[in-house]
Design a protein around this nucleic acid. Structure first.
Length: 375
RNA sequence: GGGGGAGUCGCAUAGCGGCAAUUGCAACAGACUGUAAAUCUGUCCUCUUCGGAGUUCAUUGGUUCGAGUCCAAUCUCCCCCA
């Protein structure tokens, strides 16, 4: 499924290709988040023509609650339902175990939730999460885990990690005894946990590395711990994870985070940041971030991003975008989202080119100070 | 000409004897990392060593320990009758 093409000699950055039945994914890659069967504010033709997204995410928890598993099954899976013909990945709901912490209870069997939509009560178990993800039909599906808070104490982190491991084996059993429903292959990725404790991360990475899966994920990072700790955990884990499988760092992150993680051997990323921050008026550029709501942009009649790869970067000005966001016009949300996603995809595309010609480290170190700037 | 009502920090509002003064909008910033987010937070009279200090509720005068609140006059605006 995964082919490692090249490793940068001056770092651990890798370039490869991930094959799926819905198409090939060049790595490193960024995957736009499309929680509820849509990347918010972005059309699918824009994901393809403007952004060139190779794979997008969906979320088990959200899709299970609405439209519901039965409707997705009737539709013939999520690809048929939303018309996206390229690869998809679904998160398992493990992150919601973390983010909806006030509405859930974790037990050995699984996790009971209250729906954020209507308050109804539901149970997620490793088994039914596999069944739901079979019904959704993403190309890559995730094990059901607990995303442990960044400030968890050692005792809790260890207990949580061990439960996640037991849940993983239950996921694998159910996954292996079921078939895809729609005639194409699905891959299950397990998730390394262990919070910010090096020995737990080592244990967890070893546990995951021993399992026969097609890729590995690193979870439970960028959830409140210092950035340096996150980088340290990535290094520790990637020393152990097999080199012939893709490594997916879940939920990360800023452009700087992504470059730092790539240099430590990560291949896949997803994050709400380009879309959510975009809807909130923050633009990412190679020279720093722009808060388009700020007064200073009201009269800046320059293109949004002269270096940008999306049409919106060239055919609209910063002053116009400032106006749209101030006036709460929907087009503003769309433009910001498209711009940011196109920026993220261009970032990983360019990173890949530099990995392949052995110039990754030089390129990254020249870029990082600029990315951190505020314009 | 007669009668009635109203003037509060950009705008709109609250306030009914203990108030630098409610709320909304606007404005000015900030946050956002496997999406309960087109969301949330802060500032928003002046100065400040962030502890406070100084001036405010149309204007002037008065009652009171104390007035945005009560009284009088003045100015301005609105409504009704002629």
């Amino acid at each position: 499924m995964y082919k490692l093409l090249h490793t940068d000699p001056s770092s651990n950055a890798r370039a490869g290709i991930l094959h799926t039945d819905h198409g090939d994914i060049p790595t490193p890659i960024f995957m736009p988040v499309g929680t509820a069967a849509t990347v918010k504010a972005v059309h699918q033709h824009e994901l393809i023509d403007e952004i060139d997204a190779k794979i997008i995410l969906g979320n088990t928890y959200h899709l299970y609650l609405r439209p519901g598993t039965e409707i997705l099954r009737q539709a013939g899976g999520l690809h048929r339902f939303n018309g996206w013909e390229r690869p998809m990945l679904t998160d398992s709901g493990g992150f919601q175990v973390f983010s909806l912490s006030e509405n859930r209870k974790i037990k050995e069997e699984g996790c009971t939730f209250r729906s954020h939509i209507d308050g109804s009560k539901h149970l997620f178990t490793p088994e039914n999460v596999m069944d739901i993800q079979r019904a959704i039909g993403a190309d890559i599906i995730m094990a059901f885990d607990e995303c442990c808070p960044g400030d968890a104490d050692y005792t809790y982190a260890k207990q949580s990690m061990q439960r996640t491991h037991r849940w993983l084996d239950r996921c694998l059993s159910r996954f292996n005894e079921t078939e895809p429903l729609y005639g194409y292959h699905q891959a299950l990725f397990p998730i390394v946990q262990g919070c910010q404790y090096e020995d737990l991360r080592i244990q967890s990475a070893n546990y995951i590395a021993e399992r026969a899966t097609e890729g590995c994920a690193i979870g439970g990072l960028a959830v409140g711990e210092p950035t340096e700790v996150m980088y340290q955990m990535i290094e520790v884990v990637n020393r152990i994870l097999p080199t012939d499988k893709p490594r997916y760092l879940m939920g990360v992150g800023t452009p700087q985070n992504i470059l730092e993680a790539i240099s430590r051997g990560v291949d896949m990323f997803d994050c709400v940041m380009p879309t959510r921050n975009g809807r909130n008026g923050l633009l990412f550029t190679m020279h720093g971030t722009i808060n388009i709501k700020n007064q200073k942009w009201a009269t800046c009649f320059e293109p949004i991003d002269p270096e940008g790869s999306a049409k919106v970067d060239h055919c609209y000005t910063l002053a116009y975008l400032h106006h749209l966001i101030r006036a709460e016009e929907l087009l503003g949300l769309q433009i910001c989202s498209i711009h940011n996603l196109a920026f993220y995809l261009r970032l990983v595309r360019t990173a890949r080119e530099h990995i392949l010609d052995n110039s990754f480290s030089a390129w990254t170190s020249s870029l990082l100070p600029d990315l951190a700037r505020r314009l």
